[in-house]
Amino acid sequence: MLTRQISLSAPIFLFIFLLQEAVVNQFKLPGGGFSLFAIFALVWAVISTPEIAALTGFGAGLLMDMSGGAGGPVGQWTLIMIIICYAVSYLGYGDGNINGNPVGVVFFVVVANLVTEVLFLASSALLGVTTGGFGQILLTLLGNSLWVLVITPIVLPVFSFMHNFVFETRSAL
């Protein structure tokens, strides 16, 4: 069962990562833009069990670390994504108001994305990676959150469909 899930999930994750690098990154969007791949990983984690979410965070974070513009050392995004994906899944697990409700999922993804960015900033400060002035950081955090708020409801049905296909669940968002 787990082998089937992983063998189906891996190409989907690679495809979204490729979409992020080859298409989304082509556009210089105002407010810092958004990461479709991060949104995908967070949505996947919110609607999965904590165990799957932790593995999702590991895989997604590792791919984000492999991106040319990752910014920090290899492993930084991996660590952050494991923690965030596990946390969002753990907090929402079994609560239909969160992981069974599209509004709840969008809210969780927006907040989780913001926390991810803050954790990245904090870990960058610890690792000595320069991240810019306070004003610019605030602007990026705000812009990024707004983009996630706009994009997530649009892509949520597609990501949810993929998740249902892989895990053979019948509920759909």
Binding site: E21, K28, F34, A38, G69, G132
Partner: peptide, 14 residues
């Protein structure tokens, strides 16, 4: 060929 997103708070192009 690619404008990096500012997810990592950096400004780069490929």
């Amino acid at each position: 060929i690619s404008q990096g997103s500012s997810q990592s708070f950096s400004q780069t192009v490929t």
